[in-house]
């Protein structure tokens, strides 16, 4: 458990869809957040997030934070992964940007500064591409509903 988590906290669960909706499959996180918010689940706050560094302010003191992001293409675009980055060792890809820290750097920074939620769950979809202006690729778009259902189950059980 992170010492940054306050047991007295009554903050709602947080779902953060990370990514840029104008960069192809990077829009997966915001697309999941948009569809999930329509479920209007009680005690769940849903946000779309462009800069992982901003999460440090948003996830402090929360019991459960669920992040949704797109992962680099590998073998099967649209494949959905569930990870617990505070419990599992994850090897992040090298960063190509700059003015913003990557998600795993932000988690590492949160760990160092004691600014993490109690539990962190990451749903990541394997992307096909991140072309500027492109829509979600069909297989990734098809994974949006599946991710929303799995996250909703997890929130209800939390």
């Amino acid at each position: 458990m992170s010492a940054g988590f306050d047991l007295r906290s009554s903050k709602p669960l947080l779902l953060a869809g990370i990514g840029n909706p104008d960069r192809g499959d990077d829009g997966f996180g915001p697309a999941v957040a948009a569809r999930f918010s329509k479920l209007s689940l009680p005690n769940v706050e849903t946000i779309a997030c462009r800069r992982p560094l901003d999460l440090l302010d948003r996830w402090q003191g929360r019991r459960l934070v669920i992040l949704v992001d797109a992962a680099l293409p590998h073998e099967r675009p649209g494949r959905l992964f569930r990870l617990e980055p505070l419990r599992q060792k994850v090897a992040p890809a090298a960063l190509s940007s700059t003015h913003s820290l990557g998600l795993f750097e932000v988690i590492a920074l949160g760990r160092t500064l004691d600014l993490l939620p109690h539990r962190l769950v990451l749903y990541a979809v394997e992307a096909l591409g991140f072309s500027p202006g492109a829509a979600l690729s069909p297989l990734v778009a098809a994974a949006v509903g599946k991710a929303v259902r799995r996250i909703a189950r997890e929130c209800r059980a939390a």
Partner: peptide, 10 residues
């Protein structure tokens, strides 16, 4: 990087 720096300059 800042993550490494934060260990000593939190």
């Amino acid at each position: 990087d800042a993550v490494a720096m934060a260990r000593d300059h939190g």
